[in-house]
Nucleic acid binder design. Sequence first.
DNA 1: CCCAATTAGACAACCAAGTTGTCCTTGAAG
DNA 2: CTTCAAGGACAACTTGGTTGTCTAATTGGG
Lengths: 156, 156
Amino acid sequence: MSRKGADLALLLLGGFRQLAEDAGAELLRRGYPELRPSQEFAMRAIAGGADSASELGRRLSISKQAAAKVTSVLEERGYVARMDDAKDFRRKLLTVTPLGHEVMAQGEAIFDDLRAAWARKIGETALDRLQSDLSILIGNAAVDLDAPGMTGLEED
Amino acid sequence: MSRKGADLALLLLGGFRQLAEDAGAELLRRGYPELRPSQEFAMRAIAGGADSASELGRRLSISKQAAAKVTSVLEERGYVARMDDAKDFRRKLLTVTPLGHEVMAQGEAIFDDLRAAWARKIGETALDRLQSDLSILIGNAAVDLDAPGMTGLEED
DNA sequence: CCCAATTAGACAACCAAGTTGTCCTTGAAG
DNA sequence: CTTCAAGGACAACTTGGTTGTCTAATTGGG
C-alpha cells in the first residue's frame, strides 16, 4: 500500500515548515534564482559526486525516475550537463556547469548569513518548536540540541 | 512566483527521508492502521487543541483548505468528528473520537520502541547523516545534538 | 562465446499534499 | 446598520514524488 514517499510528510511539521519558508523567502529577496529546493538539493548532490540519474536517486532516496525528472529541469536551466559516458553507453554522465557552481556559491553566501541570523534567533521560538517537532521522530533523549531550557514535547 | 509550499522539499533530505521511511515501514509492520503521516499529524494537532479547520491550518502552517481536506479524510475514517458549534455557526468543531485516541495511543507505543532502537543506532549512520542534512538548514553551530564524535558536515 | 540477469534510462499514468482563487455565510465592531 | 473579518466549501492547478513498462547496454556464469 505504498507508504513510501508519503511518509516524508511526517517531517513537514510546523516548525520546520516555517523555517524553510523563511529561508526560501530570504533567498528570493536576495536575488537568488528561482530554484526549487528539490532542484537545489539535487544539484548539490550531483556536485557531490552523484554522476548519474540512478546514482542521484540512490543518494536522495528517491526513485531514478524522479531523479531523472529533476535532472532534466536542471539541464534546461543550464546548471547541469548530461553527456554520454564513453565507458558505459547506457549512462548519461552528469556534471554541474560553471553556471551551476556559481549559483551554488551564491546560495552558500546567503545561507551563511541566514545561519548567523538563526543563531541569534535560535533561543527564542524557531528552534524551540523545531526541537519539539523533531523529538516526535527521534525522541527526547537523542535530541538535545543545546538545551538551555527546552523540554521538548510541550506542544502548546 | 510562490516558492511557498515547495520550500518544504528543502527538508526532504536523504537522511530524514530514510528515517521516515523506516518509521513508516515499522508502523505498518506492527499493524498500525494505514494512516498518512499528514493525517496522523493533523489528528495529533486536533487532539492538541486545534478545534477548527482554520485553526488547524494555522498550527500546521498550511492553508485552511488543506487543513479542511485532511480533516475530511480523518472524519471519513472515524478518527475525528465534525460538529456544529453552537456558539459560532460558521465553525465546525473538531474533536478526536475515542477510536482516534486509541490509534494515537497505539502509535505512541510503537514510537517509544522506535526511539529506543534509534537511541542505540544513533551514533552510527542515521543521525550522522540527519545531522549533516540539518546543518544545511540551521548551521553547524546551532546543531550539536549530543555530538560525541560527530563532526557534522562530512558528506560521505 | 553466448545467454541470463542486472542496470541505466525514458515514457506514461497516477497520486499525495499542498497551493490560489472565488464564493457564501456568519459574526464582530465602527 | 453597514462594513469588514473570519470560517468554511468548492474548483483548478502545481510539485514532487510514485509504479509499471519498455528498450538498450553491460556483466557474469557455464
